[in-house]
């Protein structure tokens, strides 16, 4: 299952500056494992204690995976996985 993963600016240090990379897997968790194998250091920026880090949003195509099974969300051949840091804060 080949997917395209869109990488945000802050994580491009792990992908030699590439904005998007290819990865494989049938779930988001498998895609992240595959990313880690090729771009070491990414996994710890995305996953904490077995769940997606709260500072990070991951989408499969147009869907935020938090509303679609989290790390177990299904990924199909040709899908686009987009990683975006949450934009948030507060007084």
């Amino acid at each position: 299952m080949a997917v395209t993963v869109s990488i945000p600016t802050i994580l491009r240090t792990h992908t030699a500056g590439e904005k998007s990379v290819e990865a494989s897997g049938s779930t988001v968790a498998e895609v992240i494992e595959n990313l880690e194998a090729n771009h070491g250091g990414l996994k710890s920026r995305l996953v904490k204690e077995g769940a997606l880090h709260r500072f990070v949003n991951v989408y499969v195509n147009d869907e935020d995976v938090r509303f679609a099974g989290g790390l177990e969300a299904a990924v199909k051949d040709g899908d686009t996985v987009t990683i975006l840091p949450a934009v948030a804060g507060g007084a």
Binding site: T82, L84, V87, G89, A91
Partner: peptide
């Protein structure tokens, strides 16, 4: 201008769908 999905006097957050559309 973005919608503060938290609608709070002490927190702000871009709604996740808005965030994806913005970056795309």
């Amino acid at each position: 201008p973005m919608v503060n999905a938290a609608r709070s006097p002490t927190f702000y957050e871009f709604e996740s769908g808005d965030l994806l559309r913005l970056y795309r």
